[in-house]
């Protein structure tokens, strides 16, 4: 059963285009959205939320939450979502509690009492205007709002960058709690891929080439990591690695690290363009940050 479906989403921003993004999400799953700066992560999330519309020339795509279409069932579609954005979408002249009172009633099941309790728990100053809150406080306020009504899809656009280490831990705990019930799902974009690695079940990796964003990979975290291995060898030994397997290299003191790729994840098979047996022992799993580093650097 699919909770969220995004099909062939293409968004034109004039100078930049996000092209052909397709993925689906089952209930109880966390999708990590990764990519370099300016690749289109925020564009994707804002299009899903409805802030960016698919109405320019060249725009295309279908979005559904629990079979609710983003155009035909716009109200029910948006009611099913909660969000935390990098830049607060509320007027900076408002106060935190005022936001709950002004906008909360648009969302069925919004609990104002719970919202106020969460503001207290997350130590958000309630007497200050939003313009006077720090970025971290504004993010916590948005989180309190998002958790005050039952949503099916939670969209978090780089929420952790401005949070302190302690609250980041709390945040990841909240993400796990939300998906534990298998009633809702989370889409989370972040540059802190080492932390994302521990919480995301699936990955959507957006690459960038010639002013266009495209999907580099979509699938489970395990599937992504299984396709790559790291080898630390000197130049002479590296000549034995088939060129088509190399996805990047990094210079070290007296050797190089090579990131190699195999679509089916089987690095120990034999054949004409396979990895030599003597290199199998040196293979190790890279973490997500290393994979991104090598691949993005090679394409840059």
């Amino acid at each position: 059963m699919t909770l969220f479906r995004c099909e062939r989403l293409t968004k034109n921003l004039g100078e930049y285009k996000l092209k052909d993004v397709s993925f689906s999400l089952k209930p109880g799953r966390v999708l990590g959205v990764i990519g370099t700066n300016g690749c289109g992560k925020t564009t994707l999330l804002r299009t899903i939320l409805g802030s960016y519309r698919l109405d320019r020339e060249g725009d295309f795509g279908e979005l559904e939450i629990n079979k609710l279409h983003f155009r035909r069932d716009v109200k029910a579609y948006k009611e099913s979502m909660a969000y935390v954005l990098q830049s607060t979408p509320f007027s900076e002249f408002m106060h935190p509690v005022e936001i709950g009172e002004r906008y909360g009633h648009f969302y069925p099941g919004f609990d104002l009492k719970k919202y106020k309790e969460l503001l207290g728990e997350y130590k958000v100053p309630v007497k200050e205007m939003i313009s006077l809150l720090s970025k971290g406080q504004a993010l916590r306020m948005q989180l309190a709002f998002a958790l005050s009504y039952p949503a099916k899809l939670y969209v978090f656009d780089e929420p952790v960058g401005n949070l302190d280490v302690e609250f980041r831990d709390t945040f990841y705990g909240i993400v796990r709690e939300l998906t534990a019930s298998e009633q809702c799902s989370v889409i989370l974009s972040s540059h802190l891929v080492t932390e994302l690695e521990h919480v995301a079940d699936e990955i959507l990796w957006i690459g960038k080439e010639n002013e266009e964003g495209f999907v580099r990979f979509t699938g489970t975290m395990d599937d992504l990591k299984n396709r790559y291995r790291l080898l630390s060898v000197d130049d002479e030994t590296a000549k034995a690695i088939p060129a088509e397997m190399i996805r990047g290299k990094r210079l070290r003191e007296n050797h190089k690290d090579y990131l190699i790729y195999q679509e089916d994840g089987d690095f120990t098979k034999e054949g004409p363009s396979a990895l030599p047996k003597e290199l199998w022992e040196g293979l190790r799993f890279p973490d997500l940050q290393e994979i991104m580093y090598f691949v993005e650097k090679r394409d840059a």
Binding site: G50, S51, A76, K78, E79, P89, F90, S91, Y103, F106
Partner: peptide
């Protein structure tokens, strides 16, 4: 505000 576009 962006909130208008995000509201249901």
């Amino acid at each position: 505000t962006e909130e208008e576009c995000l509201l249901p």
